[in-house]
Design a protein around this nucleic acid. Structure first.
Lengths: 209, 209
DNA sequence: TAGATTGTTAATCGATTAACAATC
DNA sequence: TAGATTGTTAATCGATTAACAATC
């Protein structure tokens, strides 16, 4: 167990392992070897063992890995049992879609509140999540613990809104604005969902076959 | 200009270049060197020149790159001027959010139709896009050219629906189902938006600071 | 025990960075 | 011309794969 210099490539594979192991659990598979797991995921057995060894020794020679146990370990590494608190900024179509369909709790997040400027939605709830006025955001963040903010707001106000929220002490941003947000504080983490980048990658692949 | 063995890492950077160059255009910047572009994007000048050299010679010694020209070249490589045709399968919250907010045309796609099983939406239009019954999908695809299908349907029907559509000859899938879809045909391209993977990556980063 | 499979070290491969001659 | 900056070749760095002793 070394736990330093975990590369981005490794971190990005962890959720895939977690997803695959969750499925194996659901299928009732009890144990699995790095070799079979690799076959299912299109990854070499070497890489799997190398990846896991960054975090500990989860297997047993001659046996392999206990699926449920390994899933729990990786979930723990990812922080799914940390009960992270999250609020959403911007309740347009996309925000609503996420509130109604995305299973935040499966990733260990509880969605405590949402904020919007439109008085038509303020005061209502979506899927149990209360929607407050943006005017009350600062007070809310000061009084509650907020680990992650979901940005589902227009591009035009993205960086300003992010700066305001960083100033309030929030350090995690799930960014859907298709803008590259940044902060001089290295503790502030942005995870971007760039729809356009993704579609253009697909465009390239079908154009260059 | 070699145009073989373009690595995935290079392809994934192309949309970022395109996005940055679009912004530079909007700002009225006429020329830029690999060095300054690199500073804005947090990439080394070497890597930028290396990346571009996979596709051609777009610059000029002592001058740098003409922003508008370079943007056009990269757009061309990505296929934005191919007028790709796209249809959406599944018009729930997420599908609707994309139809109403995402600028498909900016990536060179025209959205010709959407399909759903719910009779309540069939026959209506969203943002000018007509919504047809899933029963008419096969006929539609046979009679029109469809380059990409957006999958915004429930997980449970994802692989079956994909198989059906692959059988009709479609080769590009923009997949929002959080399932790993696959095809034995290597010409079929999937581009996945895995919301959960993205959020778990963020969870890891804020948990391991 | 014999077979299977781990964790880890060493070898290979590929991607990023540095250097520089060519030239606008 | 002198300065700047390219495209490309060579050097470095890091990530993936292979090999294998340890051991369940």
């Amino acid at each position: 167990m070394k736990k330093e210099n975990i590369s981005d490539a490794v971190v990005r594979r962890l959720p895939r392992y977690y997803r695959q192991l969750t499925e194996l659990c659901a299928r009732g598979v009890v144990r699995i070897s790095s070799h079979s797991l690799g076959q299912e995921m299109n990854i070499t057995a070497s890489q799997i063992r190398q990846d896991f060894s960054c975090f500990g020794e989860f297997g047993q020679q001659g046996y392999g890995y206990n699926v449920e146990e390994l899933r729990a370990e990786i979930g723990h590494i990812l922080g799914v049992d940390n009960n992270h608190h999250l609020v959403m900024i911007g309740v347009g179509n996309l925000g609503r879609a996420l509130l109604q369909n995305f299973h935040f709790s499966q990733s260990g997040f509880s969605v405590d509140a949402a904020f919007d400027v439109a008085s038509s939605v303020v005061g209502t709830t979506i899927n149990g999540v209360p929607i407050y006025s943006m005017d009350t955001l600062d007070d809310y963040v000061r009084e509650h613990s907020v680990d992650v903010v979901v940005l589902t707001i227009p591009q035009s106000v993205a960086q300003d809104t992010a700066n305001r929220i960083i100033g309030l002490g929030v350090r995690g941003f799930w960014n859907f604005t298709n803008m590259e947000l940044s902060s001089s504080n290295p503790d502030v983490k942005f995870e971007n969902i760039h729809f356009a980048d993704s579609l253009l990658t697909l465009s390239y692949r079908i154009a260059n076959r």
